[in-house]
């Protein structure tokens, strides 16, 4: 009788252990699948399967660019004059994208969508989730972007394509921004003018692209740390630039620079990155970059990997 009980007990514990194991496994899987990138990939595949041939294809492959960190069509950190998506003057395109930047003390998660209408107007919405890994806590902000193409075609016109745009940034909770001395800890708007040109066969036969942007801004670290501060309370004009070489129709390698104001007096540094973009087709692009973002909120030498996935849904 006692033996039987013991066996029963032993079986029970084994089953319990196995069940616990399965639950842990399931949990890791859930964490894995909940990652926005994976969700996003599923979304893109589902959409491209549904919409199929309807998705816009009116531009040459590799000439639509990416969605930069604030959601605007551009490079990685710099807005360009190009509109995200492959729409031409008769088409509309919709893009979804996700970007992650892993730094020493922080992690930035970006999730967003953009739509371009007739290669003339672009609208975008993104959410930033800025994880304070060392300090603990999270800063959230939404950015609403609008861009208007003023002149030209990045490939075909003699002069560069020129666009004007704005990015309206809204912080969910400005307490950290306020604690660091931001004068405005709720919202702010950047205005920029960008010029972009692709030169066919310019570098030993490879296509090259360059872009320069002037941005009027009050934002501290993209707006995550609020707007204005003890050092400065006015709009300042910042210079930004990108240059890249397209080594094939599917591979681009480039560099970027973004000047930043130091409104808070915390030694905010200019940003730099080196990137490589893989563009398998007009519906998908994958970008990997090394970003050197300098001092952020007193934490020095913030650098790390930048990973971005971009999909054209329509």
């Amino acid at each position: 009788m006692a033996i039987k009980k013991n066996i029963k007990k032993a079986t029970k514990t084994t089953i319990k252990k196995a069940a616990a194991k399965a639950v842990t496994k399931l949990n890791t899987m859930r964490v894995f699948w909940c990652r926005p990138q994976l969700f996003f990939l599923c979304l893109v595949f589902t959409f491209t399967h549904i919409s199929g041939a309807q998705s816009s294809d009116g531009k040459l492959i590799g000439t639509a660019g990416l969605n930069q960190i604030e959601g605007t069509g551009g490079g990685g950190i710099v807005p360009w004059a190009t509109l995200a998506g492959y729409d031409s003057q008769e088409q509309i395109s919709v893009n979804a994208f996700t970007t992650e930047v892993h730094l020493e003390d922080y992690r930035l998660n970006v999730l967003g969508v953009s739509a371009s209408f007739y290669d003339r107007i672009e609208v975008s919405v993104v959410q930033h989730r800025f994880d304070l890994k060392t300090l603990g806590g999270e800063i959230k902000q939404n950015i609403y972007g609008l861009k208007y193409r003023l002149y030209g075609d990045v490939v075909y016109s003699t002069w560069p394509q020129v666009s004007i745009g704005l990015q309206h940034k809204k912080l969910h909770d400005g307490s950290i921004a306020a604690a660091l001395g931001a004068i405005n800890s709720s919202s702010g708007t950047d205005i920029y003018l960008a010029a972009t040109k692709i030169h066919l066969g310019a570098l030993f036969g490879f296509n090259t692209v360059w872009s320069v942007t002037a941005r009027a801004t009050k934002a501290n670290q993209l707006g995550l740390l609020g707007f204005s501060g003890v050092n400065n309370d006015n709009y300042q004009i910042m210079a930004e630039a990108s240059a890249a070489v397209l080594f094939s129709r599917h591979l681009a390698v480039g560099i970027e620079y973004r000047q930043k104001p130091d409104n808070l007096g915390l030694g905010e540094d200019d940003w730099l990155d080196v990137f490589i973009s893989y563009i398998p087709n007009k519906d998908l692009s994958l970008t990997l970059a090394w970003a050197e973002l300098g001092s952020i909120a007193g934490a020095e030498k913030q650098q790390g990997l930048y990973l971005s996935l971009n999909g054209q849904l329509w």
């Binding site: 030169h199 310019a202 570098l203 240059a243 730099l272 050197e292 001092s295 020095e300 650098q303």
Partner: peptide
């Protein structure tokens, strides 16, 4: 900060020069 920034700036300068010269 100076060190890593300078390093990147040098790389960028070389790249821009290369692109510019090759155009000529």
């Amino acid at each position: 900060m100076d060190n890593f920034g300078d390093h990147m700036k040098n790389i960028i300068l070389v790249c821009f020069t290369w692109i510019f010269l090759s155009a000529c």
